[in-house]
């Protein structure tokens, strides 16, 4: 059983000259941390938004754990998928606690269970519950806000996590920390993570496998070592060159 499976998925947006996703087929094993690497407009965000049905494919099928998602209720489907975006999207009028508890409250969990879970999540993302639970998002730094974003996405113990450039707007030092913590959260959880980024170093550091995309097509899908040793084509080898030309700055962006 594959965690995620795309079969000949096509997507075209009206004002684009090429397809956002061009006959994409893809299989992701359970427990993988797959990073999706590409420049803006390559279709990487479109790809993950297909998985939680924020976009509907024009053609093709998408299956999660062997179930065709177009047959499921999108709202129910999304509650089993964690979703984190670069803009974070914390609700400004709600406290940290209320933000993290949003979906558990909708699902009418028991109050003590919500309380316990929120505490657990705050510990998981490295924030002391007592100090942070009653703060409003505006009283947090960008890095702290994204930690809350992660906690909010993780609270229902989703089988799949979708992360759309979650650390894109965070300073280099905090980004590094968050990357390490995310990696350790993943390795403890055995869940499947899909992580979109345009930062090649981030993609190679976090991914157990990396998808390289350009103009709606998957150029290569393999482990970081394999991609480094045997780049599929000129685009991929140019990409790797950019990382090797400037080692250590951590800012290689497409």
């Amino acid at each position: 059983m594959k965690a995620v499976e795309l079969v000949h998925v096509d997507q075209k947006f009206p004002n684009m000259s090429y397809k956002a996703l061009d006959d994409v087929s893809l299989k992701i094993e359970q427990g993988e941390f797959v990073t999706i690497l590409g420049s803006s407009g390559c279709g990487k965000t479109t790809l993950i938004k297909m998985i939680n049905r924020l976009y509907q494919p024009d053609k093709g099928e998408i299956r999660l754990f062997d179930e065709e998602i177009s047959k499921k209720d999108p709202v129910q489907l999304r509650r089993k998928i964690g979703y984190v975006i670069q803009q974070i999207g914390l609700f400004p009028h709600m406290t940290v606690y209320e933000n993290i508890a949003t979906i558990p409250r909708i699902l009418k969990w028991d109050k003590t269970k919500i309380e316990e879970k929120v505490q657990e999540m705050l510990h998981l993302v490295g924030l002391e519950p007592k100090e942070y639970r009653n703060r409003y998002p505006a009283q947090l730094s960008g890095g702290q806000q994204q930690r809350i974003g992660l906690a909010r996405a993780l609270i229902c113990d989703p089988d799949i996590m979708l992360l759309d450039e979650p650390f894109g707007a965070i300073d280099a030092i905090n980004r590094e920390k968050l990357q390490n913590e995310l990696k350790s959260i993943h390795s403890k959880s055995k869940k499947t993570y899909l992580f979109v980024t345009h930062d090649i170093r981030e993609a190679f550091k976090l991914g157990t496998r990396v998808i390289v995309m350009n103009r709606g097509k998957i150029l290569q899908y393999d482990t970081p070592e394999e991609i480094r040793q045997n780049p599929a084509d000129g685009f991929v080898s140019d990409l790797i060159q950019t990382m090797e030309d400037a080692p250590g700055t951590g800012n290689e962006e497409l």
Binding site: L54, L77, R78, R79, I88, G89, F91, H93, I103, I106
Partner: peptide
């Protein structure tokens, strides 16, 4: 109301009514 809030809310599984009631109207 910031589009990103709506996208985050929809993405995590809030129905449009729940979004309206707990996010859009208060803001």
């Amino acid at each position: 109301v910031d589009r990103n809030l709506l996208e985050a809310g929809t993405g995590m599984g809030m129905s449009s009514w729940q979004l309206l009631r707990t996010v859009q109207i208060p803001l």
